[in-house]
Design a protein around this nucleic acid. Sequence first.
DNA 1: TTGTACGCGTTATCAT
DNA 2: ATGATAACGCGTACAA
Lengths: 348, 348
Amino acid sequence: MADLARELNVSMTTVSRALSDHFSIGPAMKQKVLKLAKKYNYQPNRMASALRKGKSKLLGIVVPYIEGRFFPSVVHGIEKAASKAGYNVIICQSNEDVAQERRSLDSLLSAQVAGVLVSLSRTTLDYRHFDKLRARGVPLVYFDRVVEGESVNAVVLDDREGGYLSTRHLLDQGCRRIAHLAGPQHLNIYKNRRQGYFDALREAGLPPDEELIVYTDMQQQQGAEAMRQLLAQPSPPDAVFGSGDYCAFGAMQEAKRQGLRVPDDLAIAGFSNESFTLVTEPAITTIDQRCEEMGQAAVRLLLEIIEAQGTLFTPRQVVLRPELLVRPSSQRRVEVAEAVPVLNGRMY
Amino acid sequence: MADLARELNVSMTTVSRALSDHFSIGPAMKQKVLKLAKKYNYQPNRMASALRKGKSKLLGIVVPYIEGRFFPSVVHGIEKAASKAGYNVIICQSNEDVAQERRSLDSLLSAQVAGVLVSLSRTTLDYRHFDKLRARGVPLVYFDRVVEGESVNAVVLDDREGGYLSTRHLLDQGCRRIAHLAGPQHLNIYKNRRQGYFDALREAGLPPDEELIVYTDMQQQQGAEAMRQLLAQPSPPDAVFGSGDYCAFGAMQEAKRQGLRVPDDLAIAGFSNESFTLVTEPAITTIDQRCEEMGQAAVRLLLEIIEAQGTLFTPRQVVLRPELLVRPSSQRRVEVAEAVPVLNGRMY
DNA sequence: TTGTACGCGTTATCAT
DNA sequence: ATGATAACGCGTACAA
């Protein structure tokens, strides 16, 4: 900037204003400055700007990990929305570890981020480390794995609705003994999916049967193990709603191994729309979590809060509607000819 | 810092030095400062530090997108390695678009990153925008989709070896007419995979047959379409080596649809170890690309260059060895009982 | 061992 | 419409 100012025989103030399109600078001057800036390949130093203004153009993300389908897609959505708004995104992984989550937050604070998006680690039971953000006036939006309550900003999928839709669908297919592979109940996503399952049963006038609920860690093996338990019962289930695709798939494998036909003897539904659910035989009915929308919604909310800095902002919880994807694993009566499922995957 | 200095009746210099563990500060003083810093919840301002020192603790990543299996895993590896070294990572997506790739670089320069990791967009044919980095003294490491040549720093998979291993394996299974679903040849990864295919054939004394090579965009549908073409030929192939898992899967579906048995009538191998390859029937033989290692290796190389700033550093190309994962889609003679394949996927 | 004073690149304030 | 100046938070050359 100093170079430009010298060459144009104006002050740095003028240059700065011209570059940031300040109204008090004449169009002629602006043109001259911009042209010279281009010529010299001037790059604004955002750090200096942020230091001076006390406002950076950085957002922080803290996720448990970047793998599988869910988090990468959400991050994808976040980065897309953020960059459109002129923000860059710093990403941190907590690796499902509170201590690392804490360190990530400190790191982001040091980096002077303008706001933070968090999905809680599985081992986070105490939320005090997030107070630091508040204390420093850094807005926070949770997504998916959130702190419950009206006092936080959060974007979540309606997991209850997802559980409800799945179970309801299985009921519609004529199933009456629907088992549920539940996830760790201290995570509200799994609690809510189970609640949706209960709600659908109740609505259908079926009493919940504890025998039909198996608690798992959501892995494929545990799904298979759970299936073994369920099939060993005197009156085994005629359908399974799994809280996740991996365990649902494990259950399906075990059922097939024992000679059951899917969906005729046993209908199956999973959760998360993992890409592999499209290529199993049969393809697995599942719930799409609107990952990318979730990321976008989270960024929108966060930017809103950032812009409302100073003003009082009433915390808001955004709830996204899940989408039920009906596939052969649960379709007992095929009414319409089914299109061949196609992976719309990337080239790698 | 000013507050601490005042409270301890020392200068900011002393505080600064104590916090950065400078040798000229006595242990007693250090303790006092650190204690008070903790009490006041002091967070260093990295921006100010970076501005002053001209060196930030930020690395930039530019990837085409964050989806599928490959890039998320590499990013995972990068973030892990970077944070271990005290760096934060800013992530940008080019969305396979040169213009956006350019903007991402500008953005990262503005953010004053200490170094950049890039995997080229599919539409990048001209590399001049990367000169800006050099001009500004910002080290650059390419990974996977790289600029060819000895003059750049890069980490790549030995794609040729991957193609060779796959084809060699198919030959070992007794296949003699091995088709190849090739990818866009201006991307070296696909060129190299094809080269490996050629090499294996030559080694086995088989002449390459252009009839057996179909060029695709790597999508599932094109794989199926390619399979149709191949099976319509007078002497159809007895094996297919696909440059990617999606097109290999499309080919397999089409083959099954036409009544062929896999692997007996047609053996199939893909590339990339997408998670779905484990759950198809049969599970698809593929090549693991060592995604996480690639990320780590890229960071290691980048940090080496950063630390060698000023010194002359000879550009280096790191080549990772691919791993062939043999699965039922290509195994004609099962010699050992196969363990049940298990998705080691995350809980979502 | 500690302190003084300046500068990193930018922008807000006040003056012209 | 433009300029002079100070300040954001930190690190360091130099002096003490």
